[in-house]
Amino acid sequence: MNDPVAMSRPKKGAAGMTGSWRTFRPVVDREACNACGLCAMYCPDGCINEEHEIDLDYCKGCGICAQECPKKAIKMEREER
């Protein structure tokens, strides 16, 4: 690459698999969820899709989704590894 200045290019995983940072993982209780979408709206890292599925390869385990869920449908469970 002959870039005139040092240049990075967009890539998934540009900061590695950030899911490995987690000590707690979010687990969605489908029965309790009313599909309001607030968890996806507030995830700082955009790890929750429209079906309210969480991308555990990248979810950092911050717990905001669980904290903001009005139905208390997300539990943070300790990672076992």
Binding site: P10, G13, A14, A15, P44, D45, Y58, K60, C62, G63
Partner: peptide
């Protein structure tokens, strides 16, 4: 819009609201 312009993920700390802002 549903589009995201940040690939998963940045190196921001877990729970960084500046990342949420950028989204």
């Amino acid at each position: 819009p549903k589009e995201e312009y940040l690939e998963k993920c940045t190196t921001a700390c877990a729970g960084c609201t500046s990342s949420l802002t950028l989204r």
